[in-house]
């Protein structure tokens, strides 16, 4: 999985440093980095992560540089500041 032809970029998720390939979506980069739990659900507080990877389910929504975005639709960029999409603990 590491045989990368792409440029490695660094970003952060909840203040932890991560690396990923530019060209992957943020959701895929997090998945490859072993970070699958992206937020807690609004009512039950249950762990959630990417599910459809097509921008349909909105399960992968996180804060990207201060905006709520589905991680599967966001291309990974150098220096991205990402926070868990849990409502309530979310404001950047």
């Amino acid at each position: 999985m590491s045989s990368s032809r792409a440029l490695l970029v660094s970003f952060s998720f909840d203040d932890e440093p991560y690396e990923g390939s530019a060209g992957d979506s943020l959701a895929v980069a997090l998945m490859l980095a072993g970070r699958r739990h992206l937020r807690d659900s609004s009512r039950q507080g249950a762990p959630r992560g990417a599910f459809c990877l097509m921008g349909s389910c909105q399960e992968c929504v996180v804060w990207v540089d201060g905006e709520r975005r589905p991680a599967c639709q966001v291309p990974l960029r150098q220096g991205m500041v990402v926070r868990s999409g849990t409502i309530g603990t979310d404001t950047p």
Partner: peptide, 29 residues
């Protein structure tokens, strides 16, 4: 995709078959 609910289908690590196709086709993983 349609996915019929079952306990635990919301856990991180459970993805749609179509999502898996996409990981394989676009990302090679």
């Amino acid at each position: 995709e349609r996915v019929m609910p079952f306990p635990g289908w919301t856990l991180p690590g459970v993805v749609g078959l179509a999502a898996a196709t996409l990981l394989l086709k676009a990302h090679g993983i």
